[in-house]
Design a protein around this nucleic acid. Structure first.
Ligand SMILES: [Mn+2]
Ligand SMILES: [Mn+2]
Ligand SMILES: [Mn+2]
Ligand SMILES: [Mn+2]
Lengths: 220, 220
DNA sequence: ATATAATTTTAGACAAACCTAAAAAATTGT
DNA sequence: ACAATTTTTTAGGTTTGTCTAAAATTATAT
């Protein structure tokens, strides 16, 4: 598999991660920052290799084989992110671009040993699950703050957007994974939400609320 | 710089490391496992970029700019090798192929932090020096066993051949970097050498003797 | 010195991954 | 229903790095 093929496979995986339907050529082009015609070329090649299901004009979806390839790249990406943060002291907003390169290094022994060296982590620095060798991972029961009712309380376990801009914003506002938040109030007008934190309560915009995952704590 | 350009630059560096003359097209082709015509193409491109000095039919040599590029890749290669051996418990015969990929990862911050994480090592697992950021490294005063007179005593500090086959041979014969050897006898007939080790004395073939470096210990 | 051999370069092709422009198909609005 | 718009594909080209075969140059041997 070439680097480019791997990035396309990963892109298709992420685009179909939640809606499960087939992915549009234009959507892939946008995510990969290429032109739709380039996507068509690549999709044909991936189809030849039985990595995707493709019929002209009908969009594309990963085959089981393609899904496993995607998960093995995602496994590598996230393990490297853990390494960069835990061992090399990168901050969580810097690791994505580097992991984007490291994920393509080909060596099973390397990933096995890296996994062991890191103590078999289950999630990456952004709270995303790390699949095991066989592509198995536990999808945690996390919900976006924007989708939770007022009164909910939970631990912040992940971000929906892992752009450096968003992560730096969180750092600046002293919001980190592992923090416990309670949803105090939602403003119907603009969708902003007031949450309680260790250091008092703050109001976060709707955009922030749609990018922060909580794992609900039972309120007995 | 593309991955391929980097590998060519590194190859030219290694081929001119000791003889200092210009490097032949065929020599590069052999090392890179490509055809001479491919080398000519690439050498023209590198010449365009002022990374090498090249005149038709006259061979090629690195420019100062090219030399610095070579050393920065070698720095990355060797730092990754240290990481693989020291942190991930690879054996010294397994690391070269993986480092061959890792050396092309582009991130200055990554290499700086890796260097710090490893405690600023001066040599790689094969005894080869690690250049600093500016391409400076101390070339140690090591000599091949085959070039030393009988009676010399020194510490084994490096290998000339880092192929897995040779390194495994050394492991099997309990020869490791850091061991102290004394050259007891040289057989003129076949160039084999008898050396004393901790565990007695052994006879090594001329081929082995031309691939092991000693750093001479003053014999006061 | 000159024929022979080896080395190096050129010419022309190919695959991978991208592009632009135009054509084809699907979707949408009235 | 069907015209307009959007999406997707096709056709044809480019760049990078490779190849084979042939030509040019340099080195070697008698
Ligand atoms: Mn990538
Ligand atoms: Mn991540
Ligand atoms: Mn390499
Ligand atoms: Mn080495």
């Amino acid at each position: 598999m070439t680097l480019s093929e791997e990035d396309y496979i990963k892109s298709i995986y992420h685009l179909s991660e939640f809606n499960s339907k087939s992915v549009a050529t234009n959507a892939i082009a946008e995510q990969m920052k290429t032109k739709p015609s380039s996507v068509t070329d690549m999709v044909k090649k991936l189809s030849e290799k039985s990595l995707v299901n493709y019929k002209k004009y009908q969009g594309v979806s990963l085959s089981e084989k393609g899904r496993l390839v995607a998960l093995s790249i995602i496994r590598k990406h996230r393990l490297w992110e853990v390494f960069l943060v835990d061992k090399l002291n990168f901050s969580w907003d810097e690791v994505h671009v580097v992991a984007e390169q490291l994920e393509h290094i080909k060596s099973d022994a390397l990933i096995d040993k890296l996994d062991a060296h890191l103590g078999y982590p289950k999630v990456d620095p952004h709270g995303d699950p790390i699949p095991n060798k066989d592509g198995v991972f536990t999808k945690s029961v996390k919900k976006l703050i924007s989708e939770l009712p007022v009164g909910s309380q939970g631990v912040c376990v992940g971000v929906n957007d892992s752009s450096a801009a968003f992560l730096k914003f969180l750092d600046k506002n002293k919001i980190a994974l592992g923090d416990t938040f309670k949803i105090l109030e939602r403003e119907e007008f603009d969708g902003s939400v007031t949450i309680s934190t260790r250091s008092g309560s703050i109001n976060i915009s709707k955009q922030i609320a749609t990018n922060l995952f909580l794992e609900i704590v039972d309120e007995e």
